[in-house]
Design a protein around this nucleic acid. Structure first.
Lengths: 154, 154
DNA sequence: ACACAATAGTTTCAAAAGAAACTAATTGCA
DNA sequence: TGCAATTAGTTTCTTTTGAAACTATTGTGT
């Protein structure tokens, strides 16, 4: 079969579809455990997650590290500030640039959510053998780095 | 380390996060190739994708197979009908139940989008060895089937 | 020094997604 | 039979998301 026009598309076997379903299920599963309990949206948690490990980032640095866009970060920061989970000041040398970190109460929440997230990851990984865990890691890293280059004619 | 409270969360190494970023990138990459070109939204394409391979499904059967909810299917069907890409009638034995299939023009579009989707999948898989492709398949199937059971105390 | 481009972040407006209520048809069973 | 519960699908209302325009500040080239 050299002619791809003959191939069929079976959704449940289609890699992008399988990834999307799996990823949604996992993200939702974690979010379900912190959303109502800590009054946190998913983008808010992502911002907290990155600042918990690396404080004093600007909003655009947060955006880089979370793969969120700057509008989403801006909104998440707004929500977190309102709930006093975040401290912000602006750089003295560049008044546009914000400097963000968790507040004390933000740190408390961070310390509670981290184990929930890690337990969830563990619960997944525990279903795999050591070997499979390692394979998964290698594969995801490799896929992360590839540059997708469609051959299909336009 | 038996106490998970000491573990740290490094977002770029966190499985759910890696899956989400990868999946979004891939889904967006494919959608970018059909959205404007065929005036198709992602849910609309999913509905077409499933009906192209298996015609005469009802809306709720489509929802099952696509992991979409019934509201999303209803809206996608509405859009596709309006653009004459779908034919619908209602079952004679159960007047609630719709019977959906691609129209002729829907088939034409389906036949054009399928190779785009498959090429995209191929472009990804080609970055992996045969062995890795097989591992990925096994892993995703396994992950798909697991029932996630968090140990974290509430 | 000054105009123009670039960057950081916010706001606004429109499209998309989700939840809940609703209509209509069918099923189950007292 | 006939009435409550269930199922299929749609509509409505609210929230979320995304894109584009906007403000403020800084950088760059002449």
């Amino acid at each position: 079969m050299t002619d791809d026009a003959n191939k069929t598309l079976v959704l449940p076997n289609f890699l992008p579809y399988k990834l999307a379903v799996l990823s949604n299920r996992i993200s939702r599963g974690i979010a379900d455990q912190y959303e109502e309990r800590f009054q946190l949206t998913v983008p808010e948690w992502r911002v907290m997650a990155v600042l918990g490990g690396e404080p004093d980032l600007s909003a655009s640095q947060v955006a880089d590290r979370t793969a969120m866009d700057k509008v989403a970060v801006s909104r998440a920061v707004k929500g977190l500030m309102k709930a006093d989970r975040l401290l912000r000041h602006f750089s003295a040398t560049d008044k546009r640039r914000s400097v963000l970190k968790l507040s004390d109460s933000g740190e408390v929440i961070y310390a509670q959510v981290v184990p929930i997230a890690i337990d969830y990851e563990d619960a997944i990984l525990n279903e795999l053998t050591k070997e499979e865990q390692s394979q998964l890691n290698v594969l995801l890293n490799k896929l992360q780095d590839i540059e997708i280059n469609t051959a299909h004619p336009v």
